[in-house]
Write a protein that binds this DNA or RNA. Structure first.
Lengths: 222, 222
DNA sequence: GCGGTAATTTTGATTAGTCAAAATGTGGAA
DNA sequence: TTCCACATTTTGACTAATCAAAATTACCGC
């Protein structure tokens, strides 16, 4: 039986929620986090997760949290793959701005056939990342591990390239774009200041930008 | 409140069902026909149509049938527009065969945004018909009336051009394609024979094909 | 004008997904 | 160790969409 959009959304949220601040491997995602990621009441998430557990898609530990099984992992990876291929397709082929693709992809990811995704993927040259630099799982669900350095951890006064922006908020994305901090841009972190909770960056044409620590943590570099 | 996929499907079925063998204008579609077009039980259609009537999308006459109101007409036309734009996009841009597009479009039509449809429409040059020759309603929901002559009514031994194929069945479409009877092809009807219930056609390279009356009625020409 | 057949509507029940609010469990602070 | 705050689960109820089967209506032929 093919999974409903709802089931796909739960699996995706667990997938993304578990890999987010992945300190330990195999960590359990607390139900509260899952519920708020999905915008549903806590009890709703509990109920749904229990039925997912019965289908063998997740492992559920009452009062502890939830994690994907191998089967759930595979399914979730396919949803994420579809989402990210679609995002890149919308930007490259359909002329969307990178801040406009998320909602559209959110809808399309549940109805697009494997065939169409593969056509897009082929047309795009089997890309490894989407417009935000998020890695695209391959057709088997495998993601290439990318080393994670953020603006908070990379060496100072050293040229680095922005590889990924971890946030889908439209206004944040527009800010990033207007200051030439999109993936692919070359920059240098000049200074980090704990007192002012900010990071100063030298970017394109030696322009300076100062951004908050929280925002800086969302920019990954290499 | 935006209509669910289910509501969209009901409206579309009424739209297509009413225009099908449109003898009288404003004719009521019988509930049985609607139910079987949607593949639901008759009682289900009755229930749903009553709620559509309460929303002002259809006019419902118990025991007689159902017709779209102006509002329902508009909504239905938009669904059909999305469907047909998507079909053409899949063929022209994504390299689909014309017999492969229906199911994919059936899913996509309910989730694609107006913006994406307009991008596709623009990319395709504001087309007036889809790959089967079905007319595409414009952004206001208006369809250009096309004069309807079928292989059963057009003059004999006169060059005509196939403009439309009214059937979504895969094997029928493949048959049509393999005998060079797709929209755009130039042909001539040589003979109609009531006894054998068939029509003989001279097509590309003077090749002859004989097809049944029922099939012939689905090929429209100009 | 009277039946009977076929279409239609009603009825009662089911499934998926959801919420609000009450009940319960967990883990940290004192 | 005891208790409290907070996270989590349970409960009861609701909505949309569906079906099967019983009840009803329409209309055609005689």
């Amino acid at each position: 039986m093919l999974p409903s959009s709802t089931v796909e959304n739960y699996l995706k949220a667990i997938y993304l929620g578990s890999s987010a601040a992945q300190t330990q491997p195999q960590r359990l995602l607390p139900m509260g986090q899952l519920a708020s990621a999905l915008g549903v009441a806590p009890g709703t998430a509990t109920t749904m997760v229990k039925t997912l557990a019965e289908s063998g898609l997740v492992k559920y530990e009452p009062y502890a949290g939830v994690a994907l099984t191998a089967a759930g992992q595979k399914l979730a990876a396919m949803v994420v793959r579809r989402h990210r291929v679609i995002e890149l397709f919308l930007v490259r082929v359909m002329g969307y701005g990178w801040d406009e693709v998320h909602d559209e992809a959110e809808q399309l990811e549940h109805v697009v056939s494997n065939r169409l995704i593969d056509r897009m993927d082929e047309m795009l040259g089997r890309p490894e990342v989407d417009p935000h630099g998020d890695p695209i799982p391959d057709a088997r669900g495998v993601v290439k591990p990318q080393q994670a350095q953020s603006l908070l951890t990379c060496p100072l006064n050293t040229r680095v390239t922005i590889t990924r922006v971890i946030d889908q908020d439209k206004s944040f994305l527009r800010f990033i774009e207007s200051h030439h901090l999109k993936p692919g841009e070359s920059i240098e972190v000049e200074e980090r200041d704990a007192a002012s909770d900010s990071v100063r960056v030298r970017g394109k044409d030696d322009q300076r930008v100062t951004i908050g620590t929280r925002a800086a943590s969302k920019l990954l570099v290499q």
